[in-house]
Amino acid sequence: MSKKIFITGTSTGFGKLTAITLSQAGHTVIAGMRGTNGKNEAVANELNALPNIEVVEVDVTDDASVKNAFEQTLAKYGNIDVLINNAGIAGFGLFEAYTIDQIKNIFDVNFYSVVRTYQAVLPSMRAAKNGLIINLTSGASGHTLPFMVPYLAAKFGVESITEGAQDELSEYGIENVSIQPGVYPTEMNTGVKTGINADKPEIIAEYGEAATAKFNAMGGALFGKMAEFKMDPQAIADGILELVNMEKGTRPLRFPLDAIAQGTDKEFIAARAETKAKWLGKYTG
């Protein structure tokens, strides 16, 4: 059955691939991106030319822009069956070397944007007693890594939204799923898309060569694994299509898509869920 699907961050990477994949499967895709008449005009025109896709202007860091994009979409299509929170930006560097403003920028793109879209779409989904919200987080969103602390803290936050909202919205027929993508060669990880990185050079200098060597070793290992496992971003788009097409009530809370993890991510998610159930049982039993 064809669904009406709103996706954020469709100018590149997972978002663009997902828009194309879902539209080819017969779903109606509202492809959100900023700069449709500016830096992203070419890709906006490319997607608009495809069947079942309409590109809409939305800046996920701007309250009014998000509100306007969803109001326009609902006025035209009547409802939104699925929201996919894909828009995001990476950030690398020593935690101490980030200014507060730079960390706020990371959270604005990766965390507060999700708050904005939830608040924009939930009234209509609650009224319909139906909906699916898919949030892209990170393969490391169950733990953290050095040199990515603010970025992963924001992704932790989105995991919290997903898990808490799932319980709050269950009686309204709205499902929430987070996807843990692992490391893929998208513009976010290849350096094509500039991240929000540590911006205190004096602190970076004080840490010296040891920190630089550790960072380079971690990056080299991740890129080596991407090549070894032939990580293809299309796997995320295909996984999202699988989730969209699943029967209501059968979707998992967390949906890891990371071949490099070789199943350990699924083990971690299962173990965490089991321990949480025991923990909550101590309070409710």
Score class of each variant (00 low, 15 high):
Lys4Pro: 03
Ile5Thr: 03
Ile7Leu: 14
Gly9Asp: 00
Thr10Gly: 02
Gly13Arg: 00
Ile20Gly: 01
Ala25Asp: 01
Gly26Gln: 10
Ala31Arg: 03
Ala31Gln: 07
Met33Asn: 03
Asn37Gln: 15
Asn37Phe: 10
Gly38Gln: 11
Gly38Asp: 13
Gly38Lys: 14
Lys39Thr: 10
Glu41His: 09
Glu46Ser: 09
Leu47Ser: 06
Asn48Ala: 13
Ala49Gln: 11
Ala49Phe: 04
Ile53Glu: 01
Ile53Arg: 01
Ile53Lys: 03
Val55Tyr: 00
Val60His: 00
Asp63Glu: 15
Phe70His: 01
Thr73Arg: 04
Thr73Ile: 04
Ala75Ile: 11
Gly78Phe: 09
Asp81Ala: 07
Val82Ala: 05
Asn85Val: 07
Asn86Cys: 08
Ala87Phe: 07
Ala87Gly: 04
Gly88Tyr: 06
Gly91Met: 03
Gly93Asn: 02
Ala97Phe: 01
Tyr98Thr: 04
Tyr98Cys: 02
Thr99His: 07
Asp101His: 10
Gln102Asp: 08
Gln102His: 14
Ile103Trp: 00
Lys104Asp: 12
Ala120Leu: 08
Ala120Val: 09
Ala120Asn: 02
Ser124Thr: 13
Met125Cys: 11
Asn130Trp: 08
Gly131Tyr: 02
Ile133Asn: 01
Thr137Ser: 14
Gly139Cys: 05
Ser141Phe: 03
Ser141Met: 06
Ser141Asp: 08
His143Asp: 11
Leu145Trp: 12
Met148Gln: 14
Val149Phe: 05
Val149Ala: 06
Tyr151Thr: 00
Val158Ile: 07
Glu159Gln: 09
Ala165Trp: 08
Glu168Leu: 13
Glu171Ile: 12
Glu171Met: 14
Glu171Val: 11
Tyr172Phe: 15
Ser178Arg: 06
Pro181Val: 02
Val192Cys: 05
Gly195Lys: 07
Gly195Tyr: 02
Asn197His: 10
Asp199Gln: 03
Lys200Gly: 02
Lys200Pro: 01
Pro201Cys: 08
Pro201Met: 08
Pro201His: 07
Glu202Gly: 09
Ile203Cys: 06
Ile204Ala: 11
Ala205Leu: 10
Glu206Val: 11
Thr212Leu: 13
Lys214Cys: 06
Ala217Phe: 11
Met218Cys: 07
Met218Val: 10
Gly219Asn: 14
Ala221Ser: 14
Phe223Asp: 10
Gly224Thr: 07
Lys225Asn: 11
Lys230Val: 04
Lys230Trp: 02
Met231Arg: 11
Met231Leu: 11
Pro233Ile: 08
Asp238Lys: 15
Gly239Ala: 04
Ile240Thr: 03
Leu241Pro: 01
Leu243Val: 06
Asn245Ala: 09
Lys248Leu: 10
Gly249Pro: 04
Thr250Val: 09
Arg251Asn: 05
Arg251Gly: 01
Leu257Asn: 00
Leu257Met: 10
Ala261Asn: 13
Ala261Ile: 09
Gln262Ile: 11
Gly263Pro: 01
Thr264Arg: 13
Asp265Leu: 15
Asp265Glu: 12
Ala271Cys: 09
Ala273Gln: 15
Ala273Glu: 13
Glu274Trp: 12
Lys276Val: 13
Thr284Asp: 11
